Amino acid sequence: MRPTTRIAAGLLAAWAVHDLEEVLTMRRSAAGILPNLPAWVPIPEELRREGLSQRQINLAVTLMGVAIATASAAGVRSGCRSPLFRGALLGFGVHGFTHIAMALAARRYVTGVATAPTVVIPFWLWARRELAKAGIRDDDRAAVLAALAFLPVVPGVHAAAHRLLRRRRA
């Protein structure tokens, strides 16, 4: 297996480990966070009141998995040179720090904080180091723009899951 294939597949594997923690803990973690968000944060009132259902979490994680699998496949096909893959890698690594920042701000456990410093950030640093040996960076303009394009995907998959499940109930 080529080193770039290992790195591209590793993104999907690291994401899966991290998101398994989120599947197992997000419902409880969100129940303590959502009701305390400022009123200007645009979330449906029922989510603020009732939190996230496990079905919604599972569906959102699955939808995000499709995005990460697509980016990982682009990485395999391109030898990790695809801007989509490099942006997903950059976004994945940086997002690990957001979990840590949220836990520090909340002064308690928040979903994802256990695997952020143990899986997400170490994988990202290793992948960046290995790719740098091949002259591949994840902080050039194309990768940064691709990473920024991923920002709305996270709330987007939760919104899509909420709408799909609400439509199913109706």
Rank of each mutant, 00 (worst) to 15 (best):
H158P: 00
I136Q: 02
P152C: 15
P117D: 15
S53R: 04
A134V: 00
H95P: 00
G51M: 07
A69H: 06
A142H: 06
L145K: 13
R166I: 02
E50G: 04
A142Q: 09
A69Q: 10
V144E: 11
E45I: 11
R55T: 09
V120F: 02
F92T: 09
R137I: 01
R108N: 10
P44H: 15
R77S: 06
H162L: 04
H95V: 04
V144F: 12
W124K: 04
Q56C: 01
G65N: 13
Q54I: 03
F97Q: 09
L148S: 12
P44S: 15
L89C: 07
R107M: 08
G51N: 08
A116V: 08
V76D: 05
N58A: 14
E46N: 13
E130N: 00
V66E: 11
L104H: 06
V61N: 10
G96E: 10
R137H: 05
R107Y: 10
I100N: 07
L84F: 06
P122Q: 14
P117G: 13
V41P: 01
A101D: 10
R77P: 00
P83L: 14
L164K: 02
P155A: 15
A142S: 11
Q56F: 03
D140L: 01
L47H: 13
R107H: 09
S53F: 05
A88N: 06
R48P: 00
E46F: 03
A134Y: 01
L52I: 08
A67D: 10
T70G: 12
S53A: 10
I68Q: 04
A161M: 03
L104Q: 12
A74P: 00
A74R: 05
P42L: 15
P155M: 15
L84R: 09
D138P: 00
A103S: 15
L47F: 05
T62Y: 14
V61K: 06
A101R: 08
L89M: 12
G65V: 14
L59I: 04
F92P: 01
A127T: 05
R107K: 06
R128W: 01
W124R: 05
L125Y: 02
R107F: 06
E130F: 00
G75F: 08
R166A: 14
R48H: 13
H162G: 01
L84T: 12
S72R: 05
L148P: 00
M64R: 10
